[in-house]
Design a binder for these strands. Structure first.
Length: 575
RNA sequence: CGGGGCGUAGCGCAGUUUGGUUAGCGCGCCUGCCUUGGGAGCAGGAGGUCCCCAGUUCGAAUCUGGGCGCCCCGACCA
């Protein structure tokens, strides 16, 4: 490609709405332009990267025996109502209405549609196991799209679904997919880690997320520093043992009432009483699809809604609004406690509350707290459960080592769905013995466009992007420093022809611009290898090859240069 | 949905507090000259419903009311 003909609209300045480095660089390098919040044009440079990633995904998925197909983006409401996800998926689901007032969803994921195929077409055990995948635009009506293509409302995803006769067969295919995913991300040049995760709205029991390590990541991962243990999970999921406060920081004394005028938050109450936040019990009122519940947690900890949903087996759990809190506690938000609630609701407590000793808690009366309350004596708990967000420094639930925390960008997730969809959509097949059976399912997703953002987050410097060769839009940028010099032009044209014929992807900067401008542009868009043709070097029949990452330059004779480039741009499937 | 910020040329911004000729600056774009190893320089030029609607006023980018849009933080969530 000749740069003079390419649409690569680079910018010197970052757009004002970009926050993270990948977003800034994608806009500055002319890869994307915003159309609406969370919706982007993928310009030619970005498109090339997308295609590279798709190629890698296809090769690896095909190697794992999966078949590519393409399902529609629009799917009828009835299919979603069959599994109940028309409502459960909720506001995330983009819905449209046609002229006949029929409702459709813009697919955020395709379990319903693929299972519909399976129940109609996979009728015999002879057809199992089977795995199907597609690479397609997906829609999710995110509350707040952000960080460019990292969290978009429209994005490109690879989704795959597998069908099995037995749980064992699903388990073994899950392992195959685990390896396939590891290979895909490795080939994309990413530093990543697979961790245990929450299955959220997709459902299922076992699930792993593939996290690209990046400080700007939206997910927090907790991992055990002990390699032998190897425990790693997202903060949504991670189980941990929360250390008890030291004896010397424990409260002592007898149960009493205390006037705490206007002190509502944990911080205000603990400052006022000159105690630590971990001496307090927070009482949170949650709405569920049935009766509300009260959940107690130690003052210094955060409640994990995902865990609460799982425990209650309820997808509708939400923090109660002020009016409901008033109704249940009889007072303003900020003075709720497990003793003397106005309504008879279940009281659950996080394990962090169990051994905290005498504690301060709300008295369900304005400006009043109880001191030195003990569970079982001064208040009752229906059940102690694990509902806290694990934090770095907590003890590993498996081996007891203090957990490390790191941030990551989720680029893929694999699920063992079990029979959730095959049951709800009645996807049966005929067994060897002639009886009908329902199949076991797995599903496996990769955010293609998110991989791009993640790769940039991991590979950039103050000059711009540094593409891993495997997904770089071009392998080489060929720069003629002075395009008014006929010798330079002649050599460039020759090299361009030879390299392109040799299968090297070359971006030929044939623009009549000053050298400095070309260097800045080339660095910004991150092409890994620069081939520099200058009048000075031509005098000795040589040209320069510069590495984007190290900025190191080497001089080669014109004769050798092409073969050197060819050697350096060879990619094998194991790269 | 709650809190905060913003809306002026393709991009980044000033001007708004205190209303007053023809609305500015940098980058980019077009023409010419010059220059060619790290976003040079000179000269000329094109480009604006100052987010929208209504009002106040002799006069509104600027004041008032209403609306819309965007961004950030939070709640929420693949």
């Amino acid at each position: 490609m000749r740069w003079s003909k390419a649409l690569i609209p680079t910018l010197k300045e970052s757009p004002s709405d970009a926050e993270v480095v990948s977003h800034k660089l994608m806009v500055r390098s002319g890869m994307i332009r915003k159309v609406a919040p969370g919706i982007y044009n993928y310009l030619p440079l970005c498109f090339r990267v997308i295609e590279k990633i798709k190629d890698i995904i296809r090769e690896e998925m095909n190697k794992a025996g999966a078949q590519e197909l393409l399902m529609p983006i629009l799917s009828p409401a009835e299919l979603w109502q069959e599994t109940g996800r028309w409502d459960i998926y909720g506001k995330e689901l983009m819905k449209v209405e046609d002229r006949h007032k029929k409702h459709y969803a813009l697919g955020p994921t395709h379990e319903e549609v693929i299972t519909d195929i399976a129940r109609k077409e996979l009728k015999s055990y002879r057809q199992l196991p089977a795995c199907f995948y597609q690479i397609q635009t997906k829609f999710r009506d995110e509350i707040r799209p952000r960080f460019g293509v990292m969290r978009g409302r429209e994005f490109i995803m690879k989704d795959a679904y597998s069908f099995h006769r037995t749980e064992e067969d699903l388990d073994s295919y899950y392992k195959v997919m685990f390896k396939t995913y590891s290979d895909i991300f490795r080939r994309c040049g990413l530093k990543f880690r697979a961790v245990l995760a929450d299955s959220g709205a997709i459902g299922g029991d076992v699930t792993h997320e593939f996290m690209v390590l990046a400080s700007s990541g939206e997910s927090l991962v907790l991992s055990c520093p002990d390699d032998k243990c190897g425990y790693a999970a997202t903060s949504d999921t991670a189980e941990s043992v929360i250390p008890c406060p030291d004896e010397k920081h424990r409260l002592s004394g007898s149960f009493a009432e205390k006037h705490t005028p206007g002190r509502k938050t944990v911080e205000e109450v603990s400052d006022f009483l000159k105690i630590k936040p971990f001496n307090l019990i927070k009482t949170l009122i949650y709405k569920t699809s049935k009766k509300p519940v009260a959940v107690l947690i130690r003052g210094d900890r955060e409640l994990n809604t995902a865990k609460l949903k799982k425990f209650l087996r309820d997808g509708f759990v939400e923090l109660a609004e002020d009016a409901l809190v008033q109704k249940i506690t009889g007072t303003d938000v900020g003075f709720a406690g497990p003793r003397g609630l106005k309504e008879n609701i279940k009281i659950f407590a996080d394990f962090s509350v169990k051994d905290m000793g005498p504690a301060v808690m709300g008295a369900n009366r304005k400006d009043t707290h109880f001191l030195n309350a003990l569970s079982g004596k001064d208040y009752q708990v229906d059940k102690f459960i694990d509902v806290s967000i694990a934090a770095a420094g907590d003890k590993c639930a498996k081996c007891g080592m203090p957990l490390d925390g790191f941030r990551g960008i989720e680029v893929g997730q694999i699920f063992k769905l079990g029979k959730k969809y095959s049951n709800s959509l009645k996807a049966g097949y005929i067994e060897e013995n002639g009886r009908e059976n329902t199949g076991w399912m797995g599903c496996y997703g990769i955010g293609v466009t998110r991989i791009i953002a993640a790769a940039i987050e991991q590979n950039n410097d103050d000059k711009g992007i540094i593409w891993p060769l495997q997904i770089s839009p071009y392998h080489v940028v060929l720069m003629g420093l002075n395009m008014k010099d006929s010798g330079t032009v002649e050599v460039c044209e020759k090299l361009y022809g030879e390299l392109t014929d040799g299968g090297v992807e070359v971006l030929f900067d044939d623009r009549d611009l000053r050298a400095g401008f070309k260097f800045k542009d080339a660095d910004l868009i991150g092409i890994p290898i620069k081939m520099i043709v200058s009048e000075a070097n031509l005098k000795s029949g040589s040209i320069e090859i510069q590495d984007r990452m190290t900025a190191k330059s080497e001089i080669f004779s014109l004769e050798r240069a092409v073969s050197v480039i060819k050697e350096r741009t060879v990619l094998s499937n194991t790269d």
